[in-house]
C-alpha cells in the first residue's frame, strides 16, 4: 500500500460511562477499561510523595500542583467559558497575600487561612474582573495581564503590606506529609469536580457562553451572572494555590505577581491538550519537572525548555491528552481508498 492510496479509519469503541443515568457496564473488562485511566491518575498522584527521593523533589511536587491548579483554571476559563485569562499571577498574589495577612496578624493556622484566602481571594479577584466581563478573547487577556502588574506596583509604590520585602514570618505546615497530601487532594478534587461541572446543565450554559453569547442572551439567561460565577470558580483555584504557596514559602511578596504564574499554565494547556481539563494538569506535571531537571544546563536552560515546547507544538499540537484519548477510545486501521 502506498501512501496516498490509504487512509486511517477510526471507530469508536463505544463504551460510555453514563447513558441517560444508566451505567452501561457489561463486564469487568469494560469496567476496567473505563476506570483504569482514572485510577492510574489518582493512584499515581497519591504515591508521588512516597517515591520522591529528597525534600527538594517533594517541594517540586508541591510547586507542580500549584501550577496544575492554575492550568486547570486557565483551561476552564479559556475553553469552557471563552474568557482567555492571563490572571494566574493575579490569583496567586491575591490568595498569597490574604493567607499571609491572616496568618501573621490574626495567627490563623494554614488549615484555616488557606480556605479563607481561597474564598476571600476569589471574591476580590471576581470584583476586580467584574468590569472586564463584557470583553472577550484577547481583550480580556490583556486586562487580566494588567492586574497583577498593577497590584505589584501599588504595593511597591505605597510600601504597604511589607513593600518590596514582602510579608515575612508566615507560618508553615507542621507536617510535610500534610503539606503535600493537602495540595494533591485539592488538585484531584478540583480536577474531577470541574470535569463533572462542565457536563452538568450549568456547565453547558458556560460552554454555550463560549460558543455564542448572543443566543444565550436571547434564551433569557443573564450572561454576566454566569460569567461571574465562572470567574469566581476559576479564581478560587488560583487563590487556593496562592494561599498554599505563601505557607510553604513562609513568605508572601512581590514575586507572587510574577508572570510565570500567568504564562506557564498556557504552555501546560497547549502541551496537555486544551479543553480536556486533565491535559493541563498533565502538562504541568511534565513542564515543571522538566524545568527543574534542566537546571543542570545553567543559563542554557531556557533554550532547551523552548526547544521542548517547540517540539510539542510542531509534532503534537493537539496535545497529549487529545492524542491519548483518541488512541485509547478508538480502533484505528489503515484502509485502502
Amino acid at each position: 500500500m502506498e501512501i496516498g492510496h490509504r487512509r486511517k479509519e477510526r471507530l469508536d469503541r463505544g463504551v460510555k460511562v453514563r447513558t441517560e443515568g444508566l451505567y452501561a457496564l457489561m463486564s469487568w473488562r469494560e469496567l476496567g477499561y473505563l476506570t483504569m485511566p482514572r485510577l492510574v491518575l489518582i493512584i499515581g498522584m497519591l504515591i508521588l510523595p512516597l517515591v520522591m527521593p529528597s525534600m527538594y523533589w517533594q517541594r517540586v511536587i508541591s510547586i507542580v500542583c500549584i501550577y496544575a491548579l492554575l492550568s486547570l483554571s486557565f483551561d476552564f476559563l479559556a475553553h469552557f467559558v471563552g474568557l482567555v485569562s492571563l490572571g494566574g499571577a493575579f490569583f496567586i498574589g491575591s490568595g498569597g497575600y490574604i493567607a499571609a495577612i491572616l496568618n501573621t496578624i490574626l495567627g490563623l493556622p494554614p488549615m484555616v487561612s488557606i480556605p479563607i484566602s481561597t474564598l476571600l481571594g476569589a471574591v476580590i479577584c471576581t470584583l476586580f474582573l467584574f468590569p472586564c466581563l463584557p470583553l472577550r478573547g484577547v481583550y480580556f487577556a490583556i486586562i487580566t495581564l494588567m492586574f497583577p502588574l498593577l497590584l505589584g506596583r501599588v504595593i511597591e509604590a505605597l510600601d504597604i503590606l511589607g513593600g518590596t520585602d514582602g510579608i515575612l514570618g508566615v507560618g508553615s505546615f507542621t507536617n510535610s506529609w500534610v503539606e503535600q497530601y493537602f495540595i494533591i487532594l485539592m488538585v484531584l478534587f478540583y480536577l474531577f469536580g470541574m470535569r463533572r461541572l462542565v457536563n452538568l446543565d450549568i456547565g453547558l450554559v458556560f460552554r454555550a457562553v463560549m460558543d455564542n453569547d448572543q443566543a444565550v442572551r436571547a434564551s433569557g439567561i443573564n450572561l454576566t451572572y454566569y460569567k461571574t460565577v465562572a470567574v469566581f470558580i476559576a479564581s478560587s483555584m488560583g487563590c487556593l494555590a496562592g494561599g498554599y504557596l505563601a505557607h510553604i514559602y513562609m513568605w508572601a511578596g512581590l514575586s507572587m505577581f510574577a508572570l510565570d504564574f500567568s504564562i506557564l499554565p498556557i504552555a501546560a494547556t497547549v502541551i496537555g491538550g486544551s479543553g480536556t481539563l486533565v491535559g493541563p494538569v498533565l502538562g504541568a506535571f511534565i513542564l515543571v519537572p522538566i524545568s527543574e531537571l534542566l537546571r543542570a544546563f545553567g543559563t542554557l536552560r531556557i533554550v532547551f525548555y523552548a526547544l521542548i515546547l517547540l517540539a510539542f507544538i510542531v509534532f503534537r499540537s493537539e496535545g497529549i491528552m487529545v492524542y491519548g484519548q483518541r488512541k485509547y477510545q478508538q480502533f484505528e486501521k489503515w484502509v485502502k481508498v
Partner: peptide
C-alpha cells in the same frame, strides 16, 4: 423570543444539548 438571521447554534454541543440552555433559563 427571537431567532438570528445568521444561525449560530452552540457548535460544540450536540443538537439536543443546544436546547438545554434555554431550558435552564429562569423563564
Amino acid at each position: 423570543a427571537r431567532t438570528f438571521q445568521i444561525m449560530r447554534p452552540y457548535f460544540s454541543l450536540p443538537a439536543y444539548k443546544n436546547l438545554v440552555i434555554p431550558l435552564f433559563s429562569p423563564r
